[in-house]
C-alpha cells in the first residue's frame, strides 16, 4: 500500500479518537479539516503549477449557499447543504473558469484575486440580500435527519467532516493519478507537448479548477454550519492567501499535507490567540517561520514523517 494512504489512514484514526477523549477539540479540528478541504483545492491547482489568490470566492460561495438555503427555511439537512455548497461553487467556477484558465502563473493568480474581490465587495454592499458587513446567521440544521443539541451536533459534525475529508482525499488522490490528473501535472511541466498530444491545456486546467472550487465550496459550507455565521471576509484576499500559505506549509502537491498543514495552522492560531490576544499573529508568524526552516518542502516532508511512512 502507498505510504501516503497509510499515513493518511493512521492520521484519520488518531484524529477520530481525539475529540472523544478531549471534547473541546471537536470544533477546532472540524474547522481545521474543513479549511483543509479548501487547501486541498489549492493543492490540485498547484499540480498544474498554478496558484489562486481568489479561492476565498468559492469558499464564500459554499458558505453563503448554506446561509441562503437555511434562511429560506427549506429545512434542508446538513448532509444536503454541504454538497449543495460544493455544487454551487463548482457551477460558478465553471463559468468564471472560462476566462481564468486562459491565463497562467501570476496572471492566473491575479484574475482569481480580482474576481474574489468583486465578490467580496458585492457581499459587503448588497446589505439587503447578504446582510452586508454583518454577514448572515445560520441556524443549526438537522444532521442525518436528527435535530441535535449543540454539544452533540458539534461532535457529529466533526465525524461528518472527517468522513467528507476521507472521501474527498480518496477521490482527489484517484483523480491526480488518473490520465486527466496527470495531464494537469503536464500543464505545469510542458504544455507545448501536451498540446502536441492533442490535449487542450486550458480544458484540463478548467476541470482541475472546477474540482478545486468544489472542494472550497464544501469547505465553506461546513464552516457556515459549524460557525453558525457567514461574513464577507470569507471572500477576502487574506483568506485566499491563507489557503495558499497552508498548502505550502503542508507540502505543495500533497493530499495529506493539506490537512496536516491546516491542523497545525489552526492549533497554532487557537493557542496563540488564547495566550496572547494582542500578539497572536506575531506568534503565528514566528511559529510558521520555524516550521518552514525545518521543513522547507512542507510538513509531510519532515524527515521522520517520511521515514515512518516509507517503513
Amino acid at each position: 500500500m502507498r505510504p501516503e494512504i497509510l499515513l493518511g489512514g493512521a492520521a484519520a484514526f488518531v484524529l477520530a479518537i481525539v475529540p472523544a477523549l478531549v471534547p473541546w477539540t471537536a470544533v477546532m479540528l472540524t474547522i481545521a479539516l474543513a479549511i483543509g478541504l479548501s487547501v486541498l483545492g489549492i493543492v490540485v491547482l498547484l499540480r498544474a503549477g498554478q496558484v489562486s489568490f481568489g479561492h476565498g470566492l468559492y469558499y464564500a460561495t459554499g458558505a453563503y449557499t448554506v446561509a441562503f438555503l437555511v434562511s429560506a427555511r427549506l429545512s434542508l439537512d446538513a448532509l444536503i447543504l454541504i454538497p449543495l455548497g460544493g455544487l454551487v461553487a463548482t457551477l460558478i467556477a465553471l463559468a468564471f473558469g472560462v476566462f481564468a484558465v486562459r491565463y497562467r502563473d501570476i496572471f492566473f493568480a491575479m484574475i482569481n484575486l480580482a474576481i474574489s474581490m468583486v465578490a467580496f465587495a458585492l457581499l459587503e454592499k448588497l446589505y439587503h440580500i447578504t446582510g452586508g458587513g454583518d454577514g448572515m446567521n445560520v441556524a443549526r440544521p438537522t444532521l442525518g435527519g436528527v435535530r441535535l443539541g449543540r454539544a452533540a451536533f458539534e461532535g457529529w459534525m466533526f465525524y461528518t467532516t472527517l468522513a467528507t475529508v476521507a472521501i474527498a482525499s480518496f477521490l482527489v488522490g484517484r483523480y491526480l493519478d488518473s490520465p486527466l490528473g496527470r495531464a494537469l501535472e503536464a500543464v505545469k511541466s510542458n504544455e507545448t507537448r501536451l498540446e502536441y498530444l492533442g490535449v487542450s491545456g486550458n480544458r484540463v486546467l478548467h476541470v482541475g479548477y472546477a474540482i478545486s472550487a468544489a472542494l472550497a465550496g464544501i469547505s465553506g459550507a461546513i464552516i457556515a454550519i459549524v460557525n453558525g455565521h457567514v461574513a464577507p471576509e470569507f471572500a477576502y484576499w487574506v483568506r485566499s492567501g491563507e489557503f495558499v500559505f497552508i498548502a505550502i506549509l503542508g507540502g505543495a502537491g500533497n493530499v495529506v499535507g493539506a490537512f496536516a498543514g491546516s491542523i497545525v495552522f489552526e492549533v497554532i492560531r487557537n493557542h496563540a490567540a488564547a495566550f496572547a490576544a494582542d500578539y497572536w499573529q506575531t506568534i503565528l508568524g514566528l511559529s510558521l517561520i520555524v516550521i518552514i526552516m525545518f521543513a522547507p518542502d512542507g510538513l509531510t516532508q519532515l524527515r521522520f514523517i517520511r521515514r515512518k511512512a516509507q517503513s
Partner: peptide, 18 residues
C-alpha cells in the same frame, strides 16, 4: 502512457494512468 491516454481519450478521472 500519457501520450497513449491522449490518443484514447484523456477524460478519465478514475483509472490510474499506470
Amino acid at each position: 502512457l500519457l501520450a497513449l491516454a491522449a490518443r484514447e481519450g484523456i477524460w478519465n478521472t478514475w483509472t490510474p494512468l499506470k
